[in-house]
């Protein structure tokens, strides 16, 4: 078969040097893909056209107000709300999950009750509730022995500002959801892991911290990324109790300038920007916790780009080189 093929020897030498040439075969035709791609492109084009030509978007106003200092300040508030609430949510969620799974019936019940209550009522109601906490517990809250002497007092109205009320409401609510996510993660880890650690003399808390939770992370991270992104947007609810965050600031600007759409566009662009940043962050965190779960970590998109380019080039240039010497 190779006898009447003068280039066979050259090909073999080439294959030995740089690996076999990839198979050249006619691809399976997938007309459906092409049609759907064209339809999608059409929609994108229509949308883009509308964005550009519809004067109501007021792009010059958007450009002007995108970095307006009131908006920037409000963004900080939104970010702070998100970060604080998520910290409370994650720490609380881990605690609740561990309590829920513990052999101690008191803590398991307490955790169950907490989750039942905070998942069972709307976060907006909880927000209003915390904002009116003074009405519930009085202007002064004392700390001390229950039904006994009290050591110090807090003034409810000055301690629980709208901002702290929002952080508390969003964070405590989030903890209930996070606890279910963390619990699922913990349960996903093979029991043999805890047994192996126990047989080495590790204690329960240490097994949880060093062995189980790091492995549970692979299951915990993706939905947690979801929760962070969701929180970024849910934090806009804080506007109802007068926290000046991104949505509230845009709303105020609208009343000031009698222009609605450009400010909604500004707010949306910022939300989109931060969710994009968060998604990228999530990708790298997931990669970190994938350690040891696959033989080789997948390359980052950046590495992929670099490698494809390099491979392509070296393969081409080495092939040319070898062909030259064989000639």
């Amino acid at each position: 078969m190779t006898d009447n093929n003068p280039t066979a020897g050259a090909d073999d030498a080439l294959a030995a040097a740089i690996g076999p040439a990839p198979i050249r075969a006619v691809r399976v035709r997938r007309p459906g893909r092409w049609i759907s791609a064209i339809i999608l492109l059409l929609f994108v084009a229509m949308f883009a056209h509308m964005l550009v030509t519809n004067k109501n978007f007021g792009w010059d106003l958007v450009r002007q107000w995108l970095f307006w200092h009131t908006i920037i300040q409000a963004i900080w508030v939104t970010l702070e709300l998100t970060v604080y609430a998520m910290v409370i949510g994650i720490v609380g969620g881990v605690l609740l999950a561990v309590m829920r799974l513990s052999s101690n019936p008191v803590s398991a019940t307490a955790a169950w009750l907490y989750t039942w209550f905070f998942r069972g009522t709307p976060v907006l109601v909880q927000l209003l509730f915390w904002n009116n906490i003074a009405a519930l517990v009085g202007q002064q809250v004392g700390f001390g022995v229950p039904f006994g002497p009290q050591f110090f007092h807090l003034d409810t109205n000055s301690t629980i500002t709208a901002f702290t009320a929002a952080v508390l409401a969003l964070g405590l609510n989030e903890a209930a959801y996070m606890s279910e996510i963390v619990r699922a993660g913990i349960l996903s880890v093979d029991e043999g892991q805890s047994e192996a650690a126990a047989s080495l003399g590790m204690r329960r808390s240490k097994i949880m911290r060093r062995i189980v939770l790091p492995q549970a992370m692979r299951v915990i991270i993706p939905p947690t990324g979801n929760e962070v992104i969701s929180m970024l947007k849910t934090s806009s609810l804080a506007s109802v109790i007068g926290v000046v965050e991104l949505t509230d600031a845009s709303e105020s600007a609208i009343h000031l300038y009698f222009k609605a759409i450009p400010f909604y566009v500004v707010a949306s662009l910022w939300y989109l920007f931060f969710t994009t940043v968060l998604s990228i962050g999530q990708y790298y965190i997931e990669r970190h916790y994938a350690r040891g779960s696959t033989r080789n970590l997948p390359p980052t998109p950046f590495q992929k780009l670099l490698r494809a380019n390099l491979l392509f080039r070296t393969r081409r240039s080495r092939a040319a080189e070898i062909r030259e010497t064989l000639r």
């Binding site: 047994e195 192996a196 650690a197 790091p214």
Partner: peptide
Amino acid sequence: FQRFNLFPH
């Protein structure tokens, strides 16, 4: 153990 139970991470 039969199934090794090494810590995979």
